[in-house]
Design a protein around this nucleic acid. Structure first.
Ligand code: FES
Ligand code: FES
Lengths: 143, 143
DNA sequence: TCCTAAATATGACTAATATCATGTTTTATA
DNA sequence: TATAAAACATGATATTAGTCATATTTAGGA
């Protein structure tokens, strides 16, 4: 469904959404442990996210990663697209070149609507949309 | 979503469902070309499917692969599970160890029902269920 | 201005998938 | 019974995804 890298990206961003702010920056190594992702690897992913304005960062002493208000509006879809490439979610389940109703593969009619609704949800949901649920204890960040 | 291997497996089985019978066996190399999968690779996958009674085969001259009536009842879900392992489809999108309502990850409520309905369809649909659509030209096997 | 703490950039290493190649066994037929 | 055609089994290689390591740049504080 999703690559490990994009799962890690989502976990890191959600962790920052809940625990960080401009005043409370978090070090890469302090993100890696609670979300259970290797340090150097999450650092690399955070840099990619930073380059594309999905997380904010500050170097030097007292620096770290955090989300500003704009960052929190990032859509889940955009994070996944950045890390996994833009057609992992929308491509044909049998790898036909184009997935549409004109030239449907044998599984197209079976999966098209659930695939579409999955993508739709990812396009409608921003990082901050998920944070209230985490804050109120209705869902949990993976250990 | 699915690995290449399981996509290839599905394509091969569907191709056999439409074009083969006990009387009309098909060589591995004559499957590989129309479904656009490397010869040696599809042969390997067909052997795995054969070992688990999802396709039938016969060695020697005049031999090849085909589907018997029982093979055609194989569920799409079983093919994917055989090739990809049994939790690629049902596991948590953020790789939490257990995906359930007791300990939901931040994305669980967002994706649970579409994930469940996707798996449900794969569990309800057999190979032969898809063949009539292909035969009647409502869907197409990938080139 | 110098030192240190942090992100950043880059590349090397490792593991998992995917692909290719080669030899062995089975079966039909001459 | 010899031959050839096919699946079957096994392992080697290549490619990609994931992980680790190291050097560089930036920012704050002494
Ligand atoms: S054409 Fe295959 S899923 Fe749409
Ligand atoms: S717990 Fe993550 S999808 Fe269910």
């Amino acid at each position: 469904m999703l690559s490990n890298s994009s799962k890690y990206a989502l976990k890191a961003v959600l962790y920052l959404a809940v625990h960080s702010s401009m005043e409370k920056k978090i070090l890469a190594k302090d993100i890696s442990e609670p979300i259970n992702v290797p340090r150097a690897y999450i650092a690399k992913i955070l840099q990619e996210l930073s380059r594309h304005n999905m997380v904010s960062s500050m170097r030097g002493p007292g620096g770290g990663f955090y989300l500003n208000e704009e960052n929190k509006k990032t859509l889940l879809f955009d994070i996944i697209n950045l890390i996994d490439g833009d057609n992992r979610l929308t491509s044909c389940v049998l790898s036909l070149h184009k997935c549409d109703n004109e030239n449907p593969c044998p599984m197209h009619h079976l999966v098209d609507d659930t695939k579409a609704s999955f993508v739709k949800k990812l396009k409608e949901t921003s990082v901050e949309d998920l944070t209230s649920e985490i804050r109120s204890g209705k869902s949990f960040l993976p250990i």
